[in-house]
Amino acid sequence: MRIILTGYGVVGQSLIDIFENQKFENLKKYGFNPKVVAITDRGGAAVNKKGLDLERIKKVKTREGSVAADKKFGQPQAIAQSIIQSTEAEIMIEATSTNVVNAEPGLSNIKTAFNSGKHVITTNKGPLALAFPTLTELADHNKVLLRFSGTVGGGTPILEFAKKCLSGDKINEMQGILNGTTNYILTEMAEKRVTFKKALELAQKLGYAETDPSMDINGIDAACKVVIIGNWIFNKKFTLKDVKVNGIKNITLKELNNATKKGKRIKLIGSINGKPTVAPKEIRRNDPLCVSGVLNAVTFISEYAGKQTIIGRGAGGIETAGAILRDLLDIKYNLANRMLL
């Protein structure tokens, strides 16, 4: 299977590690043989229709900062969209960083891939948050598949759980801790009695929060995930601007103390129960949803199966790359079935 990877950050590199890893031999039984024919990053692209030598590309990236510096296959200044357009491949993996202002360049990358008949796996939430209904419509129109398991829950199969394991059931409601960074900060504040500022600094030191943590602490990251769950699982057509969002910046230690006294914890909860919202809420401490640290947890309340909660690490390069792998296999089986019809 020929793959174009756009964006060679933490997730992209983790995916390449998986492809390269000897353990990958295990995947042979799935009949899955990935060939990365193009990688793009901020410096340009590296393209080889016979499949790039991943070990070598990795070295080039580490040494020179861009895959485009490869002497034989590098294309400095190449524009991702023209690479996507002109390179023959079955799948494009969109892993550029999330942008919630206009979703670029991810949105254009995905549209170009669709237009040239390529299936898309995205770990970039921006295009989905801003244009989910458009993208699913375009995918159908171009008869290609769009997968995005890695956008919610990182490696934890939250979307698959709801879509596949609960298929046939009617899911009425969803509540979830969808952002590990904010959950870490809130846990620290509640358990160690430190201020928001202190807790944030610690999170940054440990690599749980980015230098600019606003996407996380303002609740935008969680809201993006609410959009994805709402559209994909609840079949509702809405985008980021339709989500009511409140972050955790103004949570005080006093509020947290009050909650603790009642046997509760304050958590940043994304929910779909009527209107999609993201806001800090009090949750009972014995509720399975009430997880601590960087964990994510999502509860689905469905008509027949009742209340189900799924818990797991919500981020991380290798975890998200694992989600991409699941999507790749899912697409592989879909394509095989299509071809053999």
Partner: peptide, 19 residues
């Protein structure tokens, strides 16, 4: 050849087919 191989791998390999 690249297109042919990719296509055949997707369609014929896996599912314990032994292909």
């Amino acid at each position: 050849i690249e297109r042919a191989m990719s296509t055949l791998e997707i369609a014929l390999l896996g599912n314990n087919s032994g292909n």
